[in-house]
Amino acid sequence: MPPIVLTVNGKRQSVDVAPDTPLLWVLRDNLGLTGTKFGCGIAQCGACTVHLDGTAVRSCVMPVAAAAGKRVTTIEGLSPSRSHAVQRAWIADDVPQCGYCQSGQIMAAAALLAKNRSPSDADIDAAMTNICRCGTYQRIRAAVHRAAQEA
């Protein structure tokens, strides 16, 4: 099996794993990028959300082979020093509680704002389908609006 080559956070990576290995576990176990989380393994919760060529995808069900040759951005690569508008808004509104889902929430919000600079509540409802068991949704909504305004 030839190694699989992909670009992660701007860096070319070559990984030697079974091609059906989900991108999530390549990021976490092979590349040590543990900011992307495992929540359900069936694309339900969104804790594993990363950007693939700029689009939010759920990496727990994406075979790494499908990411070959593509650009992957994880929470670690979203910005240097938490400077992305979404991260700043998340800090300003103290959104996280346990924090486990928040990498995925932030990546979903960043992808939404990249396509829609001024999302309505309905747009946010449609795009932000990630699960948060701490129930931070009200602050997530406020922070997405804040990020849209301040971006």
Binding site: E76, Q87, I91, V95, Q102
Partner: peptide, 21 residues
């Protein structure tokens, strides 16, 4: 007072049990 654990929870650096290596 702002939460001390917010910054590491917005950049993926907060270490949860599952992240231990």
């Amino acid at each position: 007072v702002r939460r001390l654990d917010t910054p590491p929870k917005v950049d993926g650096s907060a270490q949860f049990g599952i992240d231990v290596r």
